[in-house]
């Protein structure tokens, strides 16, 4: 009888472990990564822009040279100034289906490095190694054939930049 009791206890134990395991799995999704300190007060609206652009840079230009990262950031800034695109940084970044890191959620899970933040700051201050581009794509992974109809401005690392 002792073994039977043991087995019941064991199965309850297994159940609890399973339950804990499953809930742990869910907690993992909810786990928040530390967010870099961002202060936004009147006159410092760019703090939010740096936060957003650095995330997009981190998600879109992994392994790219620093100039390429500034270029990706400046594409976002160039769009804001172009009447053909939304008029704010958040408008450009969150435009439905415009950027794949928003669609696959990488935008929220990346951890931007100092360089990504620096790239965002430089682009917002006017540095533009993309020379006015409003599109960039990676020829190896680009799914849309349409982008190739754009005028190519320059190439940096794995990315092609165009308008």
């Amino acid at each position: 009888m002792k073994t039977k009791e043991f087995k019941i206890k064991l199965s309850i134990g297994i159940l609890i472990v399973c339950f804990l395991g499953v809930s742990l799995l869910f907690n993992e999704f909810k786990e928040e990564e530390p967010i870099l300190p961002v202060q936004g007060q009147i006159g410092e609206p760019r703090a939010d822009d740096v936060w957003m652009i650095s995330r997009m840079v981190a998600a879109e230009s992994r392994g790219e040279p620093f100039t390429g990262q500034v270029a990706v950031a400046s594409v976002i800034v160039n769009r804001v100034r172009d009447p053909k695109f939304p008029g704010t940084v958040n408008g450009v970044i969150y435009q439905p289906w415009a950027f794949s890191p928003i669609m696959d959620g990488a935008f929220w899970s990346v951890a931007p490095t100092e360089n990504h933040l620096k790239a965002a700051r430089y682009a917002l201050n006017g540095w533009d190694p993309s020379y006015g581009s409003t599109f960039f794509w990676n020829p190896a992974t680009a799914t849309s054939k349409w982008v190739w109809s754009r005028r190519i401005i320059t190439r940096i690392g794995k990315h092609v930049f165009g308008i």
Binding site: P83, F85, Q95, A98
Partner: peptide
């Protein structure tokens, strides 16, 4: 016109097929 541009930009359309419309409202 700016509000209309924001509405347009919030819909799941092709970037290719909304650039001129965006420019229209902006201008």
């Amino acid at each position: 016109a700016e509000a209309a541009r924001t509405n347009l930009d919030s819909m799941p359309l092709d970037t290719a097929s909304m650039m001129r419309s965006n420019q229209y409202f902006a201008q």
